[in-house]
């Protein structure tokens, strides 16, 4: 999505009503963020929006990027936010060999997830959803869901994007694309200055 370097644009303050609706949509998309929401979006904070090319919008609070949105699609967290609240987003894990491809902006393919180093959701269910002892998410994720990509042997997440295939199908097929057009470490959005 942001392979090329982005040019920073002027930021504009958001109306408090817009802020409120954003907060609401955040909570519906990422229910796991509920415990942290006051820390992410303090009631008094003045959220700012930055328009990016291709009808994307980045939401910034006090110079810290929080979320971005292409068109009016679902909000996606900026990786810096994912690093701050890793428990707030469903995640999958890729094996070591796939990292370098993901970090150069390639589409994430199924073998990187189905190999021994990769971790797809276990589908065991259970409340609350989270990571089980084998480092797998407990709920199967649907097609189109936003998901965070972690990497084998690494602490921090390395990409975030929408699934183009449900995780169950990925397990069955074992090939084909899983996430297209992700926001990854070191891409244009990551390097964009938001001060």
């Amino acid at each position: 999505m942001f392979k090329k370097d982005l040019q920073g644009a002027p930021k504009s303050k958001l109306k408090s009503s817009v802020q409120r609706s954003l907060r609401q949509s955040l909570l519906t998309t990422y229910p796991l963020l509920a415990p942290y929401i006051d820390e992410i979006l303090p009631k008094k904070g003045s959220l700012e929006a930055m328009k990016l090319p291709d009808r994307a919008t980045l939401y910034v609070l006090d110079g810290e990027p929080l979320f971005f949105q292409v068109d009016t699609n679902t909000l996606l967290p900026h990786l810096k936010l994912v690093h701050r609240f890793p428990a707030g987003f469903p995640s999958i894990r890729i094996d070591r060999g796939a990292i370098r491809f993901v970090l150069s902006g390639a589409t994430l393919m199924a073998p990187g997830l189905t190999s021994p180093g990769g971790r797809l959701p276990s589908g065991k269910g259970g409340e609350p959803e989270g990571l089980d002892e084998d480092d797998r998410w407990t709920r199967e994720l649907e097609k189109g869901e936003p998901v965070v990509v972690r990497a084998e042997g690494k602490t921090e997440a390395c990409a975030v994007g929408f699934l183009v295939e449900g995780t169950k199908l990925v397990k069955e097929k074992g090939k084909g694309p899983v996430i297209e057009d992700a926001h990854y470490l070191g891409d244009g959005l990551w390097r964009l200055g938001t001060e």
Binding site: R84, F85, P86, A87, S91, G130, L131, R150
Partner: peptide, 14 residues
């Protein structure tokens, strides 16, 4: 792994 610490009250500093 990072996500193994749910319920952490404050944001992590990376």
């Amino acid at each position: 792994e990072t996500a193994e610490a749910p319920g952490e009250p404050q944001s992590r500093h990376v």
